[in-house]
Design a protein around this nucleic acid. Structure first.
Lengths: 196, 196
DNA sequence: AATTAATGTCAGTCATCAGTGACTGTCACA
DNA sequence: TGTGACAGTCACTGATGACTGACATTAATT
């Protein structure tokens, strides 16, 4: 039972930490609260993590969404603009939504998470490069009009990033709206703009 | 010199508070730091504001970007799609940039700012309604194609919201890019998508 | 039955921080 | 010259929060 149970406890504590810190920030939450929420004593928390800071870092490391983002590119590209953009957007929003708590924390805790900001920025960066290449290729295939593919990629990304952040922050604008509906509209606009 | 100087002191303290809290959050900054940065003693801070919480609220109230957003609609609409969208975007980004510190704080400090979230959401809401009406009117004039104007407005807004947030957070994606360049590309895409 | 790993309890340390109270200094102005 | 408005200093308090050490408990393992 040793390492399994041990891991289980650590996981529960990390989950509790993520939950609470996403709502109230690193400094807004006490180690006691985290432990209680996880169903353990504060002492146990400190037996598993050598400090509060270390707990946050561990939690981040453990639940990092790094890898998923990459898979997004490896999916089936059909070279049909609408289909591909829909697929990419859906996956993007799914990943952003799954990782919303980590994203909230990361936005907030620049100071407390050394070298973390960069890892948050790494994946959009990759996505931007992938999209840029995709648009270039589509242009070469004569499927889209010629403009600057890098700029198109950035606009596309920010459009979805904005919506993803709105969703994370419970923006009332999205209340009347499903995210699926947003995706459809945005892709329609994009498709229509780029189709020759 | 009474109330002028008094206001001046209070202002300096509020400015210092905004500066520091935008970087490190409410709980990440001490009243002493704020006072020192403002060039006063901690005592003076508490003579002007009855608590740290009250200081934050006052600062927010004072520098609230509420009003500016509305002016954005009252500007010259030319009923030329490209021109109007450029004007709106430029103003939007200008206001967002001017108020970046308050925006950062507001995103972070949901818990500490009672009823603040709603006031942050109010203006985009207004903007969304204005844009919706604008798109409807443009459709009636036969200047744009028929789709759902509300959805168009939301997509337009989030596109710029995303970029504005990226700019605030120093997203490296925007490094190679001026915001003006983003605006141009995004409006080109939008214009091309909506033009009959 | 003895051992061990994981957790709990309790009492306590140490540092920090919001906020206060008493008193002083300074300048404007009447 | 005296009063009022504003800021400073200093020495506190009271609370909180991260983190520790000693010892007890529980339950599974051998």
């Amino acid at each position: 039972m040793n390492s399994i149970k041990k891991q289980d406890t650590a996981d529960k504590i990390m989950m509790a930490a993520i939950d609470l810190m996403a709502d109230r920030g690193y400094n807004g939450v006490t180690t006691e609260e985290i432990a209680t929420k996880a169903g353990f004593s504060e002492k146990t928390l400190f037996r598993h993590f050598k400090s509060k800071q270390n707990l946050l870092e561990s939690a981040f490391h453990r639940y990092h969404y790094a890898e998923e983002m990459k898979d997004l590119f490896d999916k089936e590209i059909t070279w049909d603009l609408h289909t591909d953009l829909m697929m990419i957007s859906r996956n993007y929003h799914r990943i952003m939504h799954q990782n919303r708590k980590l994203i909230q924390i990361s936005g907030r805790e620049r100071e407390n998470l050394p070298g973390f900001q960069e890892s948050t920025h790494k994946h959009p960066q990759q996505l931007k490069e992938f999209l840029t290449e995709y648009f270039e290729e589509m242009y070469n295939k004569g499927e889209i009009i010629q403009t600057d593919p890098k700029r198109q990629a950035v606009v596309f990304l920010y459009m979805h990033y904005g919506a993803a952040m709105g969703r994370i922050n419970n923006d009332p604008i999205l209340e009347a709206f499903s995210i699926e509906s947003f995706i459809e509209e945005s892709i329609s606009i994009f498709t229509r703009a780029l189709t020759p």
